[in-house]
Amino acid sequence: QAPETKIVDKSRVACDGGEGALGHPRVWLQIPEDTGWVECPYCDCKYVLKGSKADAL
C-alpha cells in the first residue's frame, strides 16, 4: 500500500507510525523551507507543509 500523505500546519512534526504499539519509535521531523515536505525514515509517511510550494502540487 502507498505511504500516507499528511498536510500539516507546522514545519516540525512528530511521527510514531500512528498505530500505537504497532507503530515505530517517535521521531521529530523538520520540514525544509526549500522543499516544503519531509518523509518519515521509518514508515515513509510524507508530511507536506500547508501553503508551501509542495502543497500546491
Rank of each mutant, 00 (worst) to 15 (best):
P3F: 12
R12T: 14
Y42A: 11
T5V: 15
E33K: 09
E4Y: 15
S52E: 09
V27Y: 03
Q30W: 12
E4A: 14
L57R: 02
V38C: 01
A56I: 14
E4F: 15
A21P: 12
D44V: 13
Y42W: 10
P25K: 11
G18L: 09
D55W: 00
A21G: 12
P3G: 13
A56R: 12
Y42L: 14
G51I: 01
P41M: 03
P41Y: 03
V27P: 05
P25H: 08
I7M: 08
V48W: 03
I31C: 08
S52C: 08
G23I: 11
V38Y: 02
W28V: 03
A14Y: 14
V13I: 11
D16A: 07
A54W: 03
D55C: 06
T5N: 06
K46Y: 06
K53Y: 09
V27R: 00
I31T: 03
Q1L: 13
W37M: 07
D9H: 09
L49E: 09
K6M: 13
K46Q: 06
D9T: 14
Y42R: 12
V38T: 06
R12L: 15
R12N: 11
P32R: 04
C45S: 15
G36V: 06
E39V: 14
C43D: 00
Q30R: 09
Q30E: 13
Y47A: 06
G23F: 08
E19A: 12
T5Q: 07
K46W: 05
E39I: 15
K10A: 09
K6S: 10
W37L: 06
G36P: 01
L49F: 05
L29N: 02
A56S: 13
R26H: 06
C40D: 06
D44T: 15
Y47G: 06
D55H: 03
V13R: 00
D34G: 06
E33Q: 10
R26W: 07
V48L: 04
I7R: 09
P3S: 14
K6R: 11
A54H: 09
C43Q: 00
D55M: 00
P41W: 06
Y47I: 07
D34C: 08
Q1I: 11
K46H: 06
K6G: 07
C40I: 06
Y42E: 11
R26Y: 08
C40S: 04
P32S: 07
G20D: 07
K46M: 08
C40M: 08
L29F: 01
H24L: 02
L29K: 01
S52W: 05
V38M: 06
L49A: 05
E19R: 11
A14W: 14
D55V: 00
C43H: 05
E19L: 10
E19K: 12
I7A: 08
R12Q: 13
C40V: 06
A2Y: 13
P32E: 07
E19F: 09
T5H: 10
G51H: 04
G18H: 13
E39M: 14
A56Y: 13
G20R: 04
W28R: 00
V13N: 03
D55N: 01
W37S: 05
A2C: 15
H24V: 04
A2P: 12
P25F: 10
C45I: 15
P32M: 04
G18Y: 06
T5L: 11
D44G: 15
G18E: 06
K53T: 10
L57W: 12
V13W: 04
R26P: 10
G20T: 05
V8T: 06
D16M: 06
I31D: 02
Q30V: 12
